[in-house]
């Protein structure tokens, strides 16, 4: 199987199960899907439908058990741990429902952290931090620590952190679930802008209709199947 070069992800017959006591729970069943570069897709479906599991596989967080998944032209099963780390570090930005910021670092330091890990020189890092914080409208809050910020501000810092990496894809798992509608809308607008202006591929999971409205492509999931 040779993936189309325009596809960021090529997925065929993907199956995934979790162990639960002595049994296994099937989280994904025969999922076949392609996601093009620059696409904005939203995974929707009820809790337990397999959205997070699929996102985790796309984010190289979970390993492929059965089926084939390509990230660009690389088959995930063939990647070493080191190669996966490298792809996650340089090509994928994550936004989680619970923000996952470092409480001991300031907003700008949170954004800068993974840039340091990418080996980017300080001057360039600071430029990117400024740009990312500008993009999410938090430049004036750069010196605040996460605990001094509201939920929406924290999620915007998390988004700035993902943007600053200049990834191929931003994977966001329920990014608005901890936020009120207005704040969530603000976050989604930033995602939309990033996708429109920077052509960053965005894959979001949510069961919120407000979020679905932002995504040109909606992928409905149910009981591990892609409907």
């Amino acid at each position: 199987m040779k993936p189309n070069p325009n596809h960021l992800y090529t997925i065929k017959d993907l199956r995934f199960s979790y162990p639960l006591e002595e049994q296994r729970v099937q989280a994904l069943r025969d999922v076949t899907l392609t996601i093009e570069k620059g696409e904005f897709a939203c995974l929707s479906g009820p809790s337990g439908s397999g959205k997070t599991t699929l996102l985790n596989i796309l984010g190289l967080i979970e390993s492929v058990q059965e089926g084939v998944v390509f990230f660009q032209d690389r088959e995930l099963k063939a990647l070493s741990e080191r190669e996966k780390n490298r792809i996650r570090r340089y090509k994928i930005g994550f936004v989680f429902q619970s923000f996952q910021l470092f409480p001991v670092l300031r907003a700008d330091e949170n954004v800068e952290y993974f840039l340091t890990r990418q080996g980017i020189p300080r001057k360039e890092r600071l430029k990117r931090v400024d740009e990312a914080l500008d993009a999410v409208g938090l430049r004036e809050h750069r010196a605040k620590r996460p605990l001094e910020m509201s939920g929406g501000q924290r999620q915007r810092v998390a988004l700035a952190r993902a943007i600053a990496k200049r990834p191929e894809v931003i994977i966001a798992d329920e990014p608005t679930a901890s936020l009120d509608q207005n704040t969530g809308r603000g976050i989604m607008e930033i995602f939309k802008r990033m996708n429109d202006e920077k052509r960053v591929t965005v894959i979001v999971s949510s069961h919120d209709p407000m979020v679905h409205a932002f995504a040109p492509r909606r992928l409905e999931m149910k009981d591990g199947f892609l409907c």
Partner: peptide, 16 residues
Amino acid sequence: KQEIGNLRANGESKGQ
């Protein structure tokens, strides 16, 4: 654990 999971998700190796 969650924070460490986040670090790993963003490309940090076990050694780091």
